[in-house]
């Protein structure tokens, strides 16, 4: 009996001090609201698999590294353009007849080099990453526009090649196999951030760069790796998106970068670095996707999506700021 009490106490404590608690509560609130409004329309297979988990998976793959990069004290505003570049780029490679796997490798390497370029300009020249990656956002979008002034299509066999990997219906039709990739990436990134020395250096790089430097925790290198990882995963998400949709456009993922920052902030990340979670960004992404799906199902004109996202973002920020600190002070 006593053990049970102690266990539930410590479990209660870990829930209350969980850094992503407010994003989780926000998600529950949004789900409850939509359930109340439209009932279980929003909880059937085709909605979950299609509206929610399809785009949601692509987004979450980007949101998690964006949050980690923010924790390390940097931004990446170019993720939407890199996503579109990877999506269009792999179609180009398909069209010239490269093997799908080789095309995949080339695009992933190219995206990691873009990350390396952003990182080098930011860290070596001392330009804030907000500026560097804003420039990157415009530049790479222009590359996309210049190379694909029409909607590129790809040979069916190349598309099928990827569909057999990412687009297999699973779990009784509730999700596509790419969801499993997302879960794997989530688990790896969570462990990296919360349970490795490198993760410790991510928090330190954004929390107090000078201290991290003085302790020999190599914050420069950490940021460099995070820029590369973010671009790489943005490119990966772009490939998954293009091959599962079978098409991509020049305005694909336009504005994605701000939704990613919103997801990270809803998940507890701070704009000044040093604070945030991977699971929060994950939850934040699906919160955004659910709002999008929800407003459409409710029959509200979908232009209200952004308005509602804005309100939810504010509420989450207020929750994070005022609620969490108090709870933490009481329970640690």
């Amino acid at each position: 009996m006593k053990q049970l009490k102690e266990f539930s106490l410590s479990a209660g404590k870990s829930i209350l001090t969980w850094k992503a608690l407010s994003s989780f509560l926000s998600l529950v609130a949004v789900l409850a609201f939509f359930y109340w409004q439209v009932g279980d329309i929003l909880f059937n297979k085709s909605i979950i698999r299609g509206s929610l988990l399809d785009l949601g998976v692509n987004w979450a793959i980007v949101a998690m590294p964006v949050a980690m990069l923010m924790i390390s004290g940097e931004f990446d505003l170019s993720v939407g353009s890199v996503y579109a570049l990877a999506a269009g780029g792999i179609f180009k490679l398909f069209q010239i007849g490269l093997h799908p796997l080789l095309s995949f490798v080339i695009i992933i390497v190219a995206c990691s080099l873009i990350g390396l370029l952003h990182a080098s300009i930011t860290l070596k020249l001392g330009i804030p990453s907000f500026i560097t990656t804003l420039a990157g956002m415009w530049f790479w979008r222009s590359v996309v526009n210049a190379m694909w002034s029409y909607t590129p299509t790809a040979p069916a066999d190349a598309i099928n090649y990827f569909d057999n990997v990412f687009g297999v219906r699973m779990g009784g039709g509730w999700f596509y196999s790419k969801f499993l990739f997302l879960i794997a990436i989530f688990v790896i990134l969570w462990i990296v951030l919360e349970r490795t020395p490198f993760g410790n250096s991510i928090f330190a790089a954004g929390g107090n760069f000078e201290a991290a430097l003085a302790r020999g925790s190599k914050p420069q290198r950490t940021k460099m790796i995070m820029f590369i990882l973010t671009s790489t995963l943005a490119g990966f998400a772009g490939i998954v998106s293009a091959t599962s949709a079978g098409a991509t456009m020049t305005n694909t993922a336009m504005g994605l970068e701000l939704y990613m920052i919103a997801a990270a902030v809803i998940g507890g990340a701070s704009l000044t670095g040093g604070v945030g979670t991977v699971e929060g960004a994950f939850i934040g992404t699906f919160l955004l996707r659910y709002i999008n799906t929800g407003v459409i199902q409710m029959g509200i004109e979908s232009k209200w999506f952004q308005g509602i996202v804005g309100v939810v973002l504010l509420l989450a920020a207020v929750l994070n700021r005022n609620f969490r600190n108090k709870v933490i002070r009481r329970f640690t």
């Binding site: 410790n200 928090f203 330190a204 929390g207 201290a211 991290a212 302790r215 040093g274």
Partner: peptide, 13 residues
């Protein structure tokens, strides 16, 4: 690092 807990600060690096 202020936003990091004691144990993580103690062993940073």
């Amino acid at each position: 690092v202020e936003d990091m807990d004691i144990k993580r600060n103690f062993f940073l690096g």
